Amino acid sequence: MATGKDRQKQLAREHHERQMQRRIEREQRAKRNAIIGSSIGVVVVVGGVVAAVTLLNGGGSKTEAAATPSASAPVTSAPPSTGPKPYNAATGTCDYVKDTNGQVKSVGLPPTEAKTTPTTKTMTFKTNLGDVVVELNNAKAPCTVNSLEFLAKKKYYDGSKCHRLGSDKFPMLQCGDPTAKADGKTQTDGTGTPGYVMAEENLTGAAYKRGTMAMAKTQAPGSTGSQFFWIYGDLAGLSPDYTPVGTITKGLDILDKVNKAGIKADAGDGTGAPKQTVEIKDVTISGKS
């Protein structure tokens, strides 16, 4: 027959197991939600509330945009000497470095030659909710635009779902992971990568206002991949570490609709898979050279 002491030991053991489970869940979220873009921590002040904004991309951590209750130091925007090099204006070439971290859907490497003309190109995302059209800044982000054009031609984004929605305080929708389920349950959502990374671009004076399309990345500089986020509000406090690649010219009403529908489940940082599914059916880029 169980004694009072036995019962106390059992309760203590169960309490310890619950604490360990919560600790594991917190650690999993921390790996997934490191920095807005694709990595770890940026400090954002919204309505007097300090939040760490996180966009993860590759390295087993997610390329996502999210707000967390604690903040890490901002990342540097200069790529390390061993990482991908920025655009070489003298030769007109880009540097794409193989990266096997995360959930890889390999389509090869983009061509290294990239032209800064025309200065803009038009990227059209055909989704289940209508078209989202973006004017890409080819003059200031040639390597990023070159990569997006390569991925579009490879049908990399076709059939993919936007996996992470923010809120009015963190107004962005993150997409570009072709492996994401966007069901609010799959822990690997946001870890998808094309198997290569590139240096960030167009960071001088970068502003993340309503209508901006920017690239997600991990904490490390030079870790931009395929994931991106569409901003439907203003992220005035976001540090200039994520390549602003273009401006949405059509489809902001779609993002507003998705935002209004909310998220399926809170990942612990105020973000989550959108209730209103956004599936990218086809992507095309046009612009005369």
Results as ranks from 00 to 15, higher is better:
123 M>T: 08
123 M>A: 11
125 F>I: 11
126 K>E: 15
127 T>R: 08
128 N>Q: 07
128 N>T: 09
130 G>M: 04
130 G>C: 03
130 G>E: 09
130 G>I: 04
130 G>H: 07
131 D>H: 06
131 D>M: 01
132 V>E: 12
132 V>G: 04
133 V>E: 11
133 V>T: 10
134 V>W: 13
134 V>N: 13
135 E>W: 01
136 L>E: 12
136 L>F: 13
137 N>V: 05
138 N>F: 10
139 A>K: 15
139 A>W: 08
140 K>E: 13
140 K>P: 02
140 K>Y: 08
141 A>K: 02
141 A>F: 11
141 A>E: 10
145 V>H: 11
146 N>T: 02
147 S>P: 00
148 L>H: 13
148 L>Y: 15
148 L>P: 07
148 L>E: 12
149 E>D: 14
149 E>A: 07
150 F>G: 05
151 L>A: 08
151 L>G: 04
152 A>V: 11
153 K>A: 15
153 K>E: 15
155 K>D: 15
155 K>I: 01
156 Y>G: 03
157 Y>T: 02
158 D>L: 04
160 S>P: 00
161 K>F: 07
161 K>P: 06
162 C>T: 07
162 C>I: 04
163 H>L: 09
163 H>I: 02
163 H>P: 04
163 H>R: 13
163 H>F: 15
163 H>W: 12
165 L>F: 15
165 L>W: 14
167 S>Q: 08
167 S>D: 13
167 S>R: 13
169 K>Q: 15
169 K>H: 06
169 K>T: 15
169 K>P: 00
170 F>E: 08
170 F>R: 08
173 L>I: 12
173 L>P: 01
173 L>H: 08
173 L>E: 08
173 L>V: 12
174 Q>T: 13
174 Q>E: 14
175 C>Y: 12
176 G>A: 03
177 D>A: 01
180 A>L: 02
180 A>E: 11
180 A>M: 09
182 A>L: 13
182 A>Q: 12
182 A>M: 09
183 D>W: 12
184 G>M: 06
184 G>T: 09
184 G>A: 02
186 T>Q: 10
187 Q>H: 04
189 D>P: 00
189 D>T: 01
189 D>S: 05
189 D>A: 00
190 G>I: 02
191 T>V: 03
192 G>L: 06
193 T>K: 07
193 T>H: 10
195 G>W: 10
195 G>Y: 15
197 V>E: 15
198 M>H: 14
198 M>K: 12
199 A>C: 00
199 A>I: 07
200 E>L: 00
200 E>R: 00
201 E>M: 07
202 N>T: 05
203 L>G: 07
203 L>E: 11
205 G>S: 14
205 G>I: 00
206 A>L: 09
206 A>K: 10
207 A>F: 11
207 A>Q: 14
209 K>F: 06
209 K>G: 00
209 K>H: 06
209 K>D: 13
210 R>G: 02
210 R>T: 15
210 R>K: 14
212 T>R: 08
212 T>N: 12
213 M>W: 10
214 A>Q: 10
214 A>K: 03
214 A>S: 10
215 M>E: 04
215 M>V: 02
215 M>K: 03
217 K>S: 13
217 K>A: 10
218 T>P: 00
222 G>I: 01
223 S>W: 12
